[in-house]
């Protein structure tokens, strides 16, 4: 019996977790293009931590509460404005915060390259990210990072368990779920269903203000963050046509056939 307990104790290696968080517009804000169409107008709008990234951090904290993780580091890329989301991460309970300084808005591939540099330096066992950022709607950084590191990946994750030092990951996919088993180090991206992030208490936020945020330049972590993508123009999407009422199922079928090209 004693042996069994000992074995169980030994079988859980405590993980070091890196959580990447992005500062984006508040999800209630409707972002508009600038009048000249050169970019979006985000001056003065409410910003905060990307919701999916908050799920990723919450899960890391829960793994630490289950004594499966030791140190949780939050990292964000950008200018000093990003300190607010890092402090939010510290207030939620992260042990450390790192700001990767970059003046330019980086594309997902460049973000992945910079994070790869940090992973090689910090050597986390698990890297958690949100599955998507509310601004670019790209949903790529986690998979790209896993590809660059040649780590196993789990995307759109709604449940994380650990058994014999293996991650058992439930993923949300079209029409159901799929479950993967993988070793660490690995990269996982969080779905909103993963958990309900905790509220940040005011005293925690006050304490987080006093903590140091470590800083490193993006150029020290990745030699090339240039991109071949050029933004030409942003615009307001064409408004949707008003709906119509049909009087019978037969008319509906006819409309679908004539107007939507659906073959019946």
């Amino acid at each position: 019996m004693y042996n069994l307990v000992l074995k169980k104790f030994e079988s859980h290696k405590k993980m070091k977790i890196l959580v990447a968080i992005k500062r984006v517009q508040d999800y209630n804000v409707k972002v508009r293009p600038k009048s000249d169409g050169s970019d979006v107008d985000i001056d003065g709008i409410k910003m905060g931590i990307n919701p999916f990234d908050e799920n990723a951090l919450e899960e890391a904290l829960r793994l630490r509460e289950k004594e499966l993780a030791t140190e949780i580091t939050v990292v964000s890329i950008g200018d000093s404005k990003n300190e607010d989301v890092l402090r939010h991460g510290l207030a939620m309970g992260a042990n450390r915060a790192i700001l990767i300084e970059s003046e330019e808005y980086l594309q997902p591939l460049s973000v992945a390259k910079v994070l790869k540099g940090l992973v090689e330096k910090e050597k986390p066992d698990l890297i958690l990210l949100g599955k998507l950022a509310l601004d670019s709607d790209a949903g790529q950084t986690g998979q790209m990072l896993a590809g660059l590191l040649n780590y196993p990946q789990g995307t759109f994750v709604s449940k994380i368990e650990i058994n014999n030092n293996k991650l058992i990951v439930t993923r949300e996919i079209d029409g159901g779920t799929n479950i993967l088993e993988m070793s660490v180090p690995a990269v996982l991206t969080a779905d909103l269903r993963l958990n309900e992030p905790r509220f940040v208490k005011l005293p925690n936020l006050m304490m987080a203000r006093k903590k140091t945020i470590e800083k490193v330049k993006a150029s020290e972590l990745a030699s090339d963050t240039s991109t071949n993508i050029e933004l030409l123009e942003v615009s307001v999407p064409p408004s949707r046509k008003a709906g119509i009422k049909v009087s019978s199922a037969k008319e509906l079928l006819q409309k679908l056939k004539d107007n939507e090209g659906i073959k019946l």
Binding site: P108, L109, A138, G139, Q143, M144, A146, L148, F156, I173
Partner: peptide, 23 residues
């Protein structure tokens, strides 16, 4: 653009050192 392509094409993009343009 589906859960299947969103899962693996970013990984392809990183390996090939190109961007992926989604949706």
């Amino acid at each position: 653009h589906s859960w299947f392509s969103r899962n693996f094409l970013p990984r392809v993009a990183a390996i090939l050192n190109v961007s992926l343009i989604t949706d």
